[in-house]
């Protein structure tokens, strides 16, 4: 099998898996309805209860799962390629931590209760502040080390501020609400959440997709890439703003969901011949597959307990990552 055919086969398999899990997600929930009946209710024009459940609860949840998963996979693949480091992940730039801080402040101040989109808007504002700070710190020449260090510093500061808000929270209920939000979830998200976040995610995807060929050339290092016509400042701009728009919006809606952006590109890399440009669509589909699967599992494992999505991805993702490290270590010996 030629390597191009293998690549097409990998993309095809991931697309089928994503589509299948999308429909499973649509038909999973506390309302015990059959698959055919749910889908009929979704497409029918009747204003009955099931149609309402499908259109207002399950459809946005499945669509958001798809888009947020794709965002995490794609941005993880881009950042690993840009920084030429398999340990890079979407949270590295401090965008997720800052978006979380925005959301936490919204909960603390009551903005999230005062008007319905207060929380995601505050989270987006957090992401915007982080990216502006990152740009100031990163400087003109487009170096990667300053980006990483600035990202670490921004993450640490946003984390500290989040702790401060928790520390000062007026009552245990507010603190609980904040902690629960931070665990990450897609429960009870509406079409409005989708309309708010989708434009940012789509804009981010376009910016990240434009990096396909530059990331391939970056395999040779940044000096060689620059000598081959890659404008490193443009690459940095697209990587930072593409990640900020898509991951900022994803975090604003679902909270911080870890490990998908780290593990998915890592697992898929050998399947696409380690070619960075090929890893982008594969990781986007892979991220969507994993997030949809996780969001189905939280509903199946503990239907009444509202198991949080971020908890599940970390419980599964961290040991899996350890195994990856173990395997790499053995290969290096």
């Amino acid at each position: 099998m030629s390597d191009r055919m293998q690549y097409v086969a990998v993309l095809g398999a991931l697309a089928v898996a994503t589509l299948a899990l999308f429909f499973v997600s649509l038909t999973t929930g506390p309302a015990d309805v059959g698959f055919g009946e749910s889908i009929r209710a979704l497409v029918s024009g009747d204003a009955d209860l099931l149609t309402l459940v499908m259109r207002e609860i399950r459809l946005p949840r499945a669509l958001l799962g798809l888009m947020i998963g794709a965002t995490l996979g794609l941005s993880g693949a881009v950042l690993q390629g840009y920084l030429r480091n398999p340990l890079a992940e979407p949270g590295l730039l401090g965008i997720s931590a800052s978006a979380s801080l925005g959301a936490v402040v919204a909960i603390y101040t009551g903005i999230s209760v005062a008007f319905p989109l207060g929380l995601p808007l505050a989270a987006l504002a957090g992401a915007v502040l982080a990216v502006l700070l990152l740009r100031v710190m990163a400087g003109e020449r487009g170096g990667t080390l300053t980006i990483i260090l600035a990202g670490v510093a921004i993450s640490a500061f946003a984390g500290a501020m989040t702790s401060l808000v928790l520390n000062l929270s007026p009552n245990p209920f507010a603190a609980t609400e904040i902690v629960f939000w931070m665990l990450g979830s897609l429960t009870d998200r509406s079409m409005t959440h989708l309309w708010l976040s989708a434009p940012f995610m789509l804009a981010g995807w376009v910016m990240l997709a434009m990096l396909a060929r530059p990331l391939d050339v970056l395999t040779l290092g940044s000096d060689a890439a620059a000598s081959m016509g890659v404008d490193m400042r443009r690459v940095q701009f697209l990587a930072v703003f593409g990640t900020a728009a898509s991951v900022g919006a994803a975090t604003a809606i679902a909270g911080a969901i870890g490990f998908i952006g780290l593990v998915v590109p890592h697992v898929l890399r050998p399947l696409v011949g380690a070619v960075p440009s090929r890893l982008l669509p594969a990781s986007a589909l892979g991220g969507a597959t994993v997030l949809l699967a996780a969001d189905i599992l939280v509903r199946l494992i503990a239907p009444g307990r509202d198991l949080k999505l971020g908890v599940l991805t970390a419980i599964v993702g961290a040991p899996f990552f350890l195994w990856l490290v173990w395997r790499t270590r053995r290969r290096m010996l």
Binding site: T219, G221, S227, G229, A274, V275
Partner: peptide, 22 residues
Amino acid sequence: SAAQRARLTSYLPQEREIAWPV
């Protein structure tokens, strides 16, 4: 532009980086 320059000059840097197993 960087691209115009790249059609006139090629460069072999001292650092021989190959980031991914392509």
